[in-house]
């Protein structure tokens, strides 16, 4: 599993962003190391970033998420100072959205390249939601038919496919050797991407189609079906 480093001007901001992201992961997630604040106030410190890179070090690589300005400068300098042996990617993703996306995708076992891409696409759900209100333009993913196993299910939990259920599906599917897609309302999402799942905006009662190809296709269908039918563990209260 890849490691993740968070570089922020503010220790409080970093801690809260990490807590928010880790709430999305059930079971074991990636190591998230923080380098935030400097000299007791706002700021960044390249030597702290180097230390965080060492704490998060993984042969699978490390993704670095940063807030603004000197966070980027300090991270670049940290790479120069520590010259790590494993691959390190500095992400242009927005810190909070990017971190949530990266932690979920990394927990699913995705490689550095995939997690980096996921983080950089992290504004997509927000852009899509606002596009629905005519406030921003974002293209909806096209509907493409794929051969293989598939099942139609109805979302029974009250909140539908919001962030936490999306993360549960993405994490479960990420561990399997299968390409899994979820379709709803004429849109199609990669089930390994919690972000894409969220762009479906599928609420309670929505009918979704889950399709899968690959060695674990049937297991993927079964796993996702189980999660959906169990209401993602959100039915106990009702």
């Amino acid at each position: 599993m890849i490691g993740i480093v968070v570089v922020s001007h503010s220790a409080a901001l970093a801690a809260a962003a990490v807590a928010l992201a880790e709430e999305m992961v059930h079971g074991s997630g990636p190591v998230v190391a923080v380098a935030a604040g400097a000299a007791g106030g706002f700021g960044t410190d390249a030597t702290e970033v180097s230390a965080a890179l060492a704490r998060a070090a993984s042969p699978d690589g490390v993704l670095v998420l940063m807030d603004l300005g000197s966070a980027v400068l300090s991270s670049e300098l940290a790479l120069e100072l520590s010259s790590p042996t494993h691959p390190v990617r500095l992400s242009s993703a927005p810190l909070v959205e990017g971190l949530v996306a990266a932690v979920v995708r990394a927990a699913g076992g995705a490689d550095l390249e995939t997690v980096a891409r996921e983080a950089e696409a992290a504004l997509l759900p927000k852009a899509t939601a606002l596009a629905e209100h005519g406030l921003s333009a974002a293209p909806a993913p096209a509907l493409v038919a794929v051969p293989g196993a598939s099942v139609r299910l109805t979302l029974v939990n009250p909140q539908g496919l919001h962030a936490r259920p999306a993360a549960q599906i993405a994490t479960a599917v990420g561990a399997l050797a299968a390409e899994v897609a979820v379709e709803a309302g004429g849109r199609r999402a990669d089930a390994a991407s919690s972000l894409e799942l969220m762009t479906l905006a599928a609420g309670q009662g929505t009918e979704i189609t889950v399709s899968a190809t690959g060695a674990d296709a049937e297991q993927a269908i079964a796993t996702v079906s189980e999660l959906v039918l169990a209401g993602f563990g959100e039915l106990e209260a009702s």
Binding site: F42, G43, T44, D45, A46, L73
Partner: peptide, 12 residues
């Protein structure tokens, strides 16, 4: 300077 300045002028 890198460890004590904090702002962008630290790394610069």
């Amino acid at each position: 300077l890198v460890t004590s300045v904090g702002g962008a002028s630290g790394p610069l």
